[in-house]
Amino acid sequence: MNQPRTARSLDDLVAAGVLAPEAAAGLARVADRYAIAVTPYLLERIRDGGEPFARQYLPDPGETDAAPEERPDPIGDGAHMPVKGIVHRYPDRVLLKLHHACPVYCRFCFRREMVGPGGDALSKDELAAALDYVRAREEVWEVILTGGDPLALSARRLAEVVGVLDAIGHVGVIRLHSRVPLADPGRIDADLVSALRASDTAVWVAVHCNHPAELTAEAAAALARLADAGIPLLGQTVLLRGVNDDPAVLEALFRGLVRNRVKPYYLHHPDLAPGTARFRLDLEEGQALMRAIRGRLSGVCQPTYVLDIPGGHGKAPIGPVWLHGGSAQGDGIEVEDWRGRRHAYPPEATRVAIDRKDGLE
């Protein structure tokens, strides 16, 4: 019996029943430019659920229409790459991009010009040079494995990299960013979990999840295998028009993550990757969504809404403002509560008491 296989072409998507033949006919230019991969597990989910879940994974004609503000390297990785595979943007942490392959290629990916079957993987010598870079810089406290999806590597190779990093005394945290627990949850098996164990370094996994429909029983079991092994889990979400740009969807998503022991970490404003304009909201729309969920969700469910500044300048928090007015001396400050009501700070009665104590009356 033939095992289901990953769809890697328009014909594969048609054969899997997730793309109409007439739709595929207009997507040849997209397929020529950007990689396609949808795992058998996700194909089944798409057949069951359709939009908006499928919007993340299925090609769209608009992908070849780049807006003037879009750029191949939207967050400026290339400006901070001292050696191949290393991005050193912040003083205390680096990205280590081991390869450029993923089990699924998301249609909004900010590295869509770099990832794919033909993308570079570090050779043995290049990996050694990247690890030497980390070893030589004691300010590097955290190494973030990204790429390409690090959990797409074999357990053996992953264990080797984790082992080398674990032996570098000044590295305190190894963080892996992955879509695998949601795109191919069966891959999170005992061997892979074992490969993530370190003796002297904290290992964290950041899981990329954008819609509550991704938190299936299979995905929950994969996350549990990681959490039960003592690996702390973070959630990363991209705010996507037509996928999760609704307070009720975000509420269900963030509660679902926390229920699965995943702390929502970042809500990313979508980057200016070529051909992704259909996914982007205005900043004001994103802030309004964050404002809408503020009083509806526990603080443990609240991510930080961030924008990666184009050009390589790093992330900036861009959530709504809750503090209004005020002078240089701090007078006239108002704090807005989750209902939209404003309150003086400090309260008037407290201010009068302080003035009396200081002999100002």
Rank of each mutant, 00 (worst) to 15 (best):
Y345W: 14
S298E: 11
S154G: 15
P274S: 03
A288T: 02
A136Y: 01
R47V: 01
L250P: 06
T350R: 14
E214Q: 13
A349H: 15
E361I: 13
T64F: 07
R341A: 12
L289A: 08
A31H: 09
G330V: 04
L250I: 07
F279H: 05
A128Y: 09
Y266P: 01
S327R: 14
R255A: 13
G286K: 03
L127N: 05
V30T: 03
A152P: 00
A167Q: 14
M114L: 15
H177V: 04
G49C: 09
I309K: 04
G17D: 15
V115E: 11
L122G: 06
I318R: 04
L223E: 00
D184G: 00
G76D: 04
R71P: 02
V173H: 05
V171W: 09
H99V: 02
I144K: 01
H211V: 07
G78Y: 11
M114Y: 15
D73E: 14
P247S: 06
D48P: 00
A24H: 04
G163R: 11
Y105K: 05
L10R: 05
R89W: 01
E139L: 11
R241C: 07
T237E: 03
D125A: 14
V193M: 08
R187W: 05
P274L: 04
R291D: 13
I36Q: 01
G275K: 11
A16H: 06
V249A: 10
E348C: 00
R55V: 05
Y133Q: 03
H313S: 08
I144F: 03
E63H: 07
A128C: 06
H177I: 02
A316T: 14
Y345G: 00
R33L: 09
D120M: 09
E214C: 11
D358P: 00
L182Q: 06
L192Y: 08
A217H: 12
P21H: 04
V104K: 00
K315E: 09
L145S: 10
L43C: 04
G295Q: 12
D73L: 10
W338D: 06
L215E: 12
T350Y: 13
E348R: 13
T146H: 04
Y90N: 03
T39H: 03
R111P: 15
G147P: 10
G299T: 07
E160H: 15
L289E: 09
E63T: 05
E160G: 13
L19T: 07
L96K: 10
K315R: 13
G49E: 13
R5Q: 15
R280L: 03
R137L: 12
A353E: 15
E251W: 00
P274W: 09
A15W: 02
E361S: 12
A7C: 15
Y133H: 05
Y345N: 02
R112D: 10
L233F: 01
E139H: 14
A224S: 14
Y265R: 01
N260S: 15
A224R: 15
R179D: 07
E22V: 10
L176E: 03
T6Q: 11
V300K: 00
G49A: 13
S199Y: 03
Q56M: 12
L240N: 04
A227I: 00
G256V: 06
R339C: 02
G119M: 06
P347I: 10
L215S: 05
L153G: 12
G326R: 10
R45E: 12
